[in-house]
């Protein structure tokens, strides 16, 4: 009985770990019209208010907006696209990545001219 319970517990833990590993840690969006920090403030505010959002990164130099997700949570492409469109911007591409915003910051810094 104990063996069966232990095996079930281990299996459940491994399954959760695998799911967490597969889940994207951040969502990266290429956005057109992103040239003014003053105006793009609305993007950070709106995305930051979403329940699944842990942190928001806006990079004007690369035209990127990235959202770090809370563990186990997600946001659909449609919801992201709607939020950015309602903020007055055009979304070109949405990519889900297994990269933290800290790693993305480093990557952007490395490519900065």
């Amino acid at each position: 009985m104990i063996r069966t319970l232990s095996a079930a517990l281990i299996a459940a833990t491994l399954s959760l770990a695998a799911a967490a590993a597969e889940a994207p840690r951040s969502i990266e969006m290429k956005v057109d019209g992103l040239v003014c920090a003053f105006c793009a403030q609305g993007i950070a505010k709106k995305l930051g208010q979403m329940e699944a959002t842990q942190e928001v990164l806006v990079s004007l130099e690369t035209g990127l907006v990235a959202v770090a997700l809370k563990p186990g949570q997600g946001i659909s492409d449609e919801a992201l696209r709607a939020t950015l469109t309602e903020a007055g911007y055009s979304v070109q591409r949405i990519e889900r990545k297994d990269e933290s915003l800290a790693e993305l910051r480093l990557r952007l810094k490395a490519t900065r001219p």
Partner: peptide, 12 residues
């Protein structure tokens, strides 16, 4: 009223 906006890759 915002009558028209053009969102371009590196401009607005």
């Amino acid at each position: 009223l915002l009558l028209k906006r053009w969102n371009l890759p590196r401009a607005q």
